[in-house]
Write a protein that binds this DNA or RNA. Sequence first.
DNA 1: TATGAATGAGAATTCATTCAT
DNA 2: AATGAATGAATTCTCATTCAT
Lengths: 210, 210, 210, 210
Amino acid sequence: MITNCEYQPKERAIYQAVLELFEEGADINNLTVAKITGRAGIGKGTAYEYFSGKEEMIAKAFFYNGEMFCRQLYEGVCKEQTLGDKVNYVLLAMERQMTKTNCVFRLIHMMADNSPVSGWIRELLKEKKEVGVVPAEAVIRRVLDDELDGREMPSEDKMKYLMLSIYSKIFCYGMLLNDDKYQQEDQRVVIRGLVNRGICREVEEIFGLS
Amino acid sequence: MITNCEYQPKERAIYQAVLELFEEGADINNLTVAKITGRAGIGKGTAYEYFSGKEEMIAKAFFYNGEMFCRQLYEGVCKEQTLGDKVNYVLLAMERQMTKTNCVFRLIHMMADNSPVSGWIRELLKEKKEVGVVPAEAVIRRVLDDELDGREMPSEDKMKYLMLSIYSKIFCYGMLLNDDKYQQEDQRVVIRGLVNRGICREVEEIFGLS
Amino acid sequence: MITNCEYQPKERAIYQAVLELFEEGADINNLTVAKITGRAGIGKGTAYEYFSGKEEMIAKAFFYNGEMFCRQLYEGVCKEQTLGDKVNYVLLAMERQMTKTNCVFRLIHMMADNSPVSGWIRELLKEKKEVGVVPAEAVIRRVLDDELDGREMPSEDKMKYLMLSIYSKIFCYGMLLNDDKYQQEDQRVVIRGLVNRGICREVEEIFGLS
Amino acid sequence: MITNCEYQPKERAIYQAVLELFEEGADINNLTVAKITGRAGIGKGTAYEYFSGKEEMIAKAFFYNGEMFCRQLYEGVCKEQTLGDKVNYVLLAMERQMTKTNCVFRLIHMMADNSPVSGWIRELLKEKKEVGVVPAEAVIRRVLDDELDGREMPSEDKMKYLMLSIYSKIFCYGMLLNDDKYQQEDQRVVIRGLVNRGICREVEEIFGLS
DNA sequence: TATGAATGAGAATTCATTCAT
DNA sequence: AATGAATGAATTCTCATTCAT
């Protein structure tokens, strides 16, 4: 079940400011509180009423973005019928997100960091897992559950491999999109098809042999 | 052809210092010149005789690491005969690198950044491409070239997809290794087999149909 | 004559909050309005209805404390008959005050400061002198007046010296009390006797020769 | 024995800057690092090469002042022959110090604080006690030792009382000097005589009865 | 009258870089 | 060539005070 989180207006303003600055190409590590609050149109001190420090602002901003993205993704995926359509939906959503910004990727990058921001993100993830928020993993799992249906559940190793394999293919599709060539829809459609089929085949393989 | 780059001793000392600090868990953005030169055992001013600034030191350090890694990989891959053995060699090299540190991943993360470091890295990549240095891509391409042999070359799109698909599988294997479960060899051997077979099948598929 | 000053409840709450925080070891310069009003249980804005700023709050709080202390002292001293008993009363009152907190000393310290708080205190002292409030000086003078009785008044210089000499002895007793050794009554009683006798002898000397 | 402490030039510059600003009436709590280093004529960052923070700068500056003062005092006292001359020397030194600034008093005030500066001062005192530096106490004790000579040592309580009693009289003399009346030497000479005699009598009393 | 959210001036501190030795 | 003391721009964060409710 998706929780209906309410965000306070100033909190939201900070998130949006961070994401905007980010989309405009700012480097996270050079993001200053002054820039963020300036963009958000609020006083510097006000930010500290809502956050304990800069790192929390940034981490939560990306988390907010990820949450919004995954929630939409989840809802969209549920409406599609076939595995191929579901995967396609995800890849298209990825495209939209990518052209706007690389936010989702950054979230992943940041998680692998040793920076204070990454610490915050990991903590947020743990915390939210207990509440009913939709993480990226849940989206993929949902797709797989639908597909598994009556069939026998594969071994844990295979499921883990499958999850990551799909995850990495989507990720790899996102990386391809950075290439100038794929700025045009007619070029993207070809590669999207390849990736989609690649994922479907992998699912069938694992689920088929189990 | 692999160029025989010579590194000056102080330059090397800087690289090693950066990598050491990194392996010890330092956050890149909190690496200071003082810490780096202190670890390298040279004066702060001296570093500026070899580098234009902190960003260059860090970027080149990771580049140095990547180069060393890929060079070894390339040499190792050349010695193996079958596709499966080659892929296995890469995955094992990945494991070794992973346990030491996530340096290769970090390199990737940093490339996706908007930070000054990432700017340096992208520039270095361009520059080196013109010289004959071995990038990660070259390793994969070498494996594929061997395999392609007499067969017909697939379309550019398919090759691009294949490259990234392999890349993503290796990447995905690296990510799995972070999991506590895979700290033990007997656990790793199972998943390594799955990844290896996944890659080989994908290669066969693309090369088979072309 | 002791004026019957009435304090408004919120005003009093502020004073008590300041003194409480102080007794708990807070540093005056790190006392924030937020902490004070928080402790007082009133809104931050409300404090500004009663005081012009933080400095006034603190200065008046200590002034309030000093006034209460001196008033009690004055009343107590009046009830005693001999010089020795009066001095003893003062020293015992000092002890009680000391164990609770060093507030009286702090008041003295603050007066010697160049801080805004000290400015306020000096101003308050002037102001109150015109009204009939009991200052520490008045207590000592009262003791001396009783003792002087019919005898001839010594020169102004001598009176001034005597006042300060007594003052310094009491002060010195207070300082001694900080010593761990004097946490026990049986230790204190010895030193208290010495101080008492020192003061009495000094009074006799000055008053005797005049 | 007086240790010959060497101070580095920048360190000294900071001390002098703090003391100068202080003599000019600055409030300790409003002393900023910018003001101090500005006055000292060095860069803000440089101060942090020598001190861990603002508090250390201020505490050590006053400590430096106290040390210099006490060292001179000690040397001067040693040259005098009679108790009266020695005490007179101390009182005159006090006067000189007072007209310049109240630094010694401030040091005392600061010690009684709960501020970080006071913490530093207390720590410095402990530390220096182990090294052979001359504290205020040593000066008084030296005077008493000379006087005690062959006579029997009084009880610990009495010695403690005597030390503090003298200390407080000197302190009280310093306080008197703040009075406008005593800005003139002819006025001071009277009161100085009274204080001097008061101290001598007290010493004789304690040493006589032991 | 009472409040506390909002503010921004101001403070401490860090650290990349320079440059005299 | 090598150094590290000196620097000050830049950054984070605090907190007294205001003012709309």
